[in-house]
Amino acid sequence: MVKREHLSLEMECLTLFQSNPYLFETIQGLEKRLGRRMSDLEPILEGLTAQGILQKTGEGALAYFRYKEPAVIAEFSFTSELEPL
């Protein structure tokens, strides 16, 4: 579990990707854009990826992250089946 001190940075990453759903960025690129250390960013990005919030493509230095939209059921009733659209 990520330490609580990292919460702020975690939220920063989260808000960043949320408001920029078409941001495709490497850890290195994020380091530049956010002005944060790569070593701090890495566990957070991996964590968000593990939770399915971000999607990671590729390996190594050229691996990039992007936002992954959550599942949406637009008209869900108390009886409907839970098959996301």
């Binding site: 939770q51 919030i53 959550p70 599942a71 637009a74 869900f76 108390f78 409907s80 839970l82």
Partner: peptide, 20 residues
């Protein structure tokens, strides 16, 4: 008389019934 559901993670089965 319905709602919008937005989710992450697995919400099928027991969890789904719980949500309802």
């Amino acid at each position: 008389q319905n709602m919008m559901l937005v989710s992450r993670g697995n919400i099928k089965g027991e969890r789904g019934s719980y949500l309802k």
